[in-house]
Each structure stands twice: as C-alpha cells, then as structure tokens.
C-alpha cells in the first residue's frame, strides 16, 4: 500500500470494497427489475416475453452472479452490524469474515443446481 492513504489493505479493506461493489450492483439490478415487473401492467404477453429471456443459459449465469453478490452483501452486512453493535465485534472481525466466506461458499454450492440446473439441461439435452 502506498504511504499517505487511508486504504490499509488486508481483510478489512477488501471486504469493504466488495460490500460497496455488490451494493451498487444490486441497486442497479433492482432498478431494472422493477421496470421489467411493471410489464405485468402492459400485457401478459409483454411480461412473459421478457421473462422468457431470463430462462436462457446466459442469463442463468448472470442470476448465479446476482445470487453471489446478494449473499455476500447480506452476510457481510450482518458482520458489519455485529462489528458495530457487539462489544467484541471489532476484535473478531477477521474471524467473522472467514465465517461469512465459509457460509457464502456452502450456499453458493447449494445454489448451483437450483439456479444453473435448467441451463445445463437446456444446453446438453435433458
């Protein structure tokens, strides 16, 4: 790290960077998501046409990425809250980050089949 900067590197800074990047990504997604849901007020066909693109393999991959971003932001957000409100939080922030990453990993493995299974079947036949 260069001298004269507040950025200290290590777990604390990188988890903050990731929290910020995922938060901004989710916000942009939500903006588009409310627009596409609003199509239910246009016509059932308009809505179903757009949702059909969400079932394609490439978008399934994007959905997996969205799940990854949300799970990290949610779990790390709880860690930030624990650091702020739990008296021992700051002392265990590093251990809590690795706990977050472990839970995140397990949930991401669990999401593989539900989120990507249909894409694999579409690509390689049932």
């Amino acid at each position: 790290m260069p001298a004269g900067t507040l950025y200290r590197g290590r777990e604390g800074m990188w988890s903050w960077v990731a929290h910020r990047v995922t938060g901004v990504l989710i916000f942009f997604f939500l903006f588009v998501h409310v627009l596409d849901t609003a199509l239910v007020r246009v016509s059932p066909e308009a809505y179903d046409d757009v949702v059909a693109t969400y079932k394609t393999p490439i978008v399934a991959l994007l959905e997996y990425g969205l799940v990854a971003a949300i799970l990290f932001h949610a779990l790390n957000g709880l860690r930030v809250i624990a650091v702020d409100f739990w008296s021992k939080g700051p002392r265990y922030q590093k251990q809590m980050l690795w706990t977050v990453m472990a839970i995140w990993f397990v949930l991401m493995v669990g999401a593989l089949y539900p989120v990507l299974g249909h894409a694999v079947r579409a690509l390689f036949g049932s």
Binding site: V40, P44, D48, V51, K55, P114
Partner: peptide, 13 residues
Amino acid sequence: LVLDGGVSKIGFA
C-alpha cells in the same frame, strides 16, 4: 429461483 422449479415457473400467471 429455488423452490417449485426455479425461474422456469415464472410468468404472468
């Protein structure tokens, strides 16, 4: 995304 067939079930109905 997970229950009841995942995204595949989503539609106007």
